[in-house]
């Protein structure tokens, strides 16, 4: 390893450049969100706003029913999370621990699902929801994601690693299968569950595509759609308002990321090491 002073200097400058490329756009977003309209229309750009225009945030928030969007986003992400936990835990346990006819077939079905992106099937699913009269409802946003093939896959791996004797000991202790899942399997798989939970929540919090396809009215729309709509204000794009609106979407995630960086990175990198 080279430890000469010029090398260290070069390395340091390189790191600075890399970090700027990835962090600076966010800094720019924050800076813009506090600017006045005039300050976004000068060139060369002003680095920092003369004074902090907090009213940009209220302007963004009041430009549409943002409280509804926000509530919908929270409700949809949390509902999906809860339903996913309810469906993937028993399924992963069955796949990991029971021998039954069709075991392989159903697991293959799950794996196929893992490979199908939402972008591929939105049209037939849309038609289906339309036939059921569930278009433009929160059902259409939640139900398709009520289970997760990826979650089952992850959890099955971790359930498989639990030694069989532990389950036998619990059975001898008079525990029912549900109790075994609740008191033994879930505590052991807690890190994986947290990892998956973060992954799922962030994914659905951020999702733009599915609500765009499935909803048409403000009562059912979520935050990303509301933010995207900010573009359509009359009289050209108001960047300072837009950036302020995006801060509402980004800040919660960045705060979570700040506190749980390691788990989140693991959550997303997991998808890469499956």
């Amino acid at each position: 390893m080279n430890t000469t002073i010029p090398y260290k200097l070069l390395n340091g400058i390189g790191i600075l450049i890399v970090v700027s490329i990835f962090a600076f756009p966010f800094v720019w977003m924050i800076s813009t969100s506090f600017k006045s309209l005039g300050e976004t229309m000068i060139f060369p750009p002003a680095w920092l706003p003369e004074s902090l225009h907090w009213e940009n945030f209220t302007a963004a928030w009041n430009s549409g029913p943002f409280l509804t969007y926000f509530k919908n986003s929270i409700f949809v992400s949390i509902s999906i999370l809860i339903l996913q936990f309810l469906t993937i835990i028993p399924a992963a346990y069955a796949f990991a621990r029971y021998q039954f006819k069709g075991n392989k077939f159903f697991f293959a079905l799950t794996m196929i699902t893992l490979m199908i992106p939402a972008q591929l099937i939105f049209l037939p699913v849309y038609l289906q929801f339309s036939a059921w009269g569930l278009l433009d409802t929160l059902w259409a946003l939640i139900l398709p994601f009520a289970s997760s093939a990826f979650g089952i896959f992850l959890l099955r791996q971790s359930f498989k690693q639990v030694p069989e004797e532990l389950l036998e000991a619990a059975r001898l202790d008079g525990a029912s299968e549900w109790k075994i899942i609740l008191k033994i399997m879930i505590p052991i798989a807690k890190p994986v569950l947290i990892t998956f939970g973060l992954f799922s929540f962030i994914t659905h919090w951020n999702d733009y595509f599915w609500p765009l396809v499935m909803t048409t009215s403000d009562v059912t729309r979520t935050l990303p759609l509301g933010i995207a709509k900010l573009r359509e204000v009359e009289g050209g794009v108001a960047w300072h308002i837009l950036m302020a609106g995006n801060m509402i979407l980004v800040i919660p995630i960045l705060i979570v990321f700040f506190f749980a960086q390691r788990q989140i990175i693991r959550a997303f990198v997991y998808t890469g090491i499956k």
Binding site: L86, A94, F100, L109, T110, I116, L143
Partner: peptide, 26 residues
């Protein structure tokens, strides 16, 4: 004998309804 099927059925139902069937329908 029934229990494993019961445990996987919610997930399998979601997958069939929203992934497998739509592919066929498409």
């Amino acid at each position: 004998k029934i229990r494993p099927y019961l445990m996987i059925s919610p997930a399998i139902l979601v997958f069939s309804l929203f992934f497998i069937y739509p592919i066929c329908y498409m």
